[in-house]
Design a protein around this nucleic acid. Structure first.
Lengths: 199, 199, 199, 199
DNA sequence: GATGAATGAGCATTCATTCAT
DNA sequence: AATGAATGAATGCTCATTCAT
């Protein structure tokens, strides 16, 4: 009788079990974008909407909002691990990948903060592990006697660079990150994701 | 039409206008604590509660969220300015005061971030000014040829140290901050407020 | 980071999506009642409470205050259109339906006011359209040379009758409305909703 | 230490008892303006501010928000009484004054509504009396056999004209009011306050 | 008598999470 | 397994009213 939004609407196809992994990936990608745009405080509904799924699906894949954040970070960490394990990898190159993540996503910055700092409320129990994984991955590439060889120096430096970058406008971040590494007298390779975009 | 506060209610003491400055101070102190514990996203009601005043009082003193944060930061900045202007001040000493604020208050860290980074949404228009004030105060003490003399290096370093500290547990902060300055090869004096607590 | 709904709480039945149309209707009905009793300024929470739904549901169905009001008016307008389009309809009969709405709901009166008067802030953009719809519906039934045929006279008269009725006690409204039409020398049919209640 | 609004501020002169009547008048004038601009829902603080007095003064003169509204209406009613009692007064002239008030102030319209309609919640007990006073004043001028002579017709007509005007944009009100009187076949004199502004 | 700060209830709105379908 | 409606607690903010000075 009155404008009824449900009238004549048609539910999207239920694509069955096959869609599950695709949905999970879509959710993570969506979260990355949304976090980058609105910060970690963004409504989960925005993530679900951008992923093109119902909110229920999100809760099927991630028990709560922190799990979503952790999943995003997990992917970032994998890239760092991948970069560090790649044939011919060296510290500068891996730090370039780390730096790319720092500059690319405000969310990553914050997550790494929570993390790297080793304090605060761990993000869903993952945080510490993730930080440790980054450290392990990078340490493998540390030449003996490197500036960052002393205990704790490596991750401390990463957190410092992230400090140089948080809150900065998107377009300033890479410049600031590089300036920060320079101030630390640490050499960094090209700032890019892993696997590096072709070229 | 009129609201009807039910009978028998007893209002807490209204201490009259005399209490206004006390309330304002209490609000800032409360904000400092609450921000330190819960971060800048903390509910304003928590601040009002801790200050022991009604929410209305808070809104009388500060028009919005950001004004509260700005008031907290303002105080911090004054300390830095004071330390830098004190007779016999030197850069190391002033950086010690800056560092004290970084370790003492999560709020200061975040605010300075917003600020120093020069991006994001300025906190109520104050942020930039405050950051500039810190920079001006410190620069005055920079010996020529100092490591941090190059343009932008000073505040970049501060933001890096703050990055080393955000998210860390309270008791780790000072240690981490000092390690960060060391990694930057910058000398820092005693970490303390200004005026320094006796001793 | 996650909110922590304390244990042991028991949610009322969630009746699932099936309830959506029912809820929407309940909200409109509740709004009609509440507006009639308390005027358009009534708290939305009162509407939600009377409809027996959470406030969130209301915001799902109606983005803001005005949308609620518009939905109520929309229904009224449909009735007028229906009455005017019914076989054998004449102006007096349609005005009877209009009058019924004026006497029945303080909300309708106010909304139509906002509307008919052509000024103020249109209610969510709907107001003007709705008013125009009423006018179009009624004008179709205007015999040539009718008292209300001159431009603007029709809706002006409606707004005048509504003026005779606003603020009056429920039980006086019909009498006052009829007296008003008489003063305007306009014939009005039985005051009743459309479709007319049997008999 | 921090920006303290109370620092260095100076209380306005306390002008003693002499100021009381002036304050009362200023409050009523302020209320008239504020209500005209923002409607009856306007914050009392806005009225006090515009009157240039503290809120306490307002509460000294008027026990609550309704009393303020009543005071405004009271003044309007006095004007109508004055116009009706003036030498050489006639109905058309007095209705012109009534109409002026209807068009001049949205607040008056609403107040008269509450009033004239004889229902709703009387405004602070005044409403009914005020409406009656208007009626008494005008009835005195009714020539026998006038269109509005029948019982109740007079105030009904006034409320109808007010209905024609509520919600209309300021600049349309006079036109609409005159159109309404014309539709009622009632003659109205110049639309102006009483005492008429010179000329 | 005047001032304006303090109080806190009240309302709009948002969003994490659950759950019927 | 997916959908998206429902729930309601939480939070920001406003404003009537009181009251110390």
């Amino acid at each position: 009788m009155s404008r009824d939004p449900s009238e004549g609407e048609r539910r999207p196809q239920n694509q069955g079990p096959k869609a599950a992994p695709r949905n999970r990936a879509a959710l993570i990608a969506a979260a990355r974008h949304v976090y980058a745009e609105q910060g970690l405080g963004a409504p989960l509904s925005a993530v679900a909407r951008r992923a093109g799924v119902g909110q229920g699906v999100m809760y099927r894949h991630f028990p709560d909002r922190d799990a979503v954040a952790a999943a995003v970070l997990e992917e970032n960490v994998r890239q760092v691990e991948g970069a560090a394990a790649a044939p011919g990898a060296d510290l500068a190159g891996a730090l370039g990948v780390v730096t790319w993540h720092l500059t690319e996503s405000a969310a990553f910055i914050n997550l790494l903060h929570l993390d790297v700092a080793g304090g605060g409320e761990p993000v869903h129990g993952y945080a510490h592990d993730l930080s440790a994984r980054v450290e392990v991955a990078l340490r493998r590439l540390l030449p003996p006697g490197h500036r960052l060889a002393p205990d704790g120096a490596l991750m401390l430096a990463v957190s410092m660079v992230s400090g140089a970058v948080v809150g900065a406008a998107r377009q300033d971040r890479e410049r600031r990150a590089l300036a920060a590494w320079r101030l630390l007298a640490v050499e960094v390779g090209p700032v890019r994701p892993f696997p590096a975009s072709a070229g």
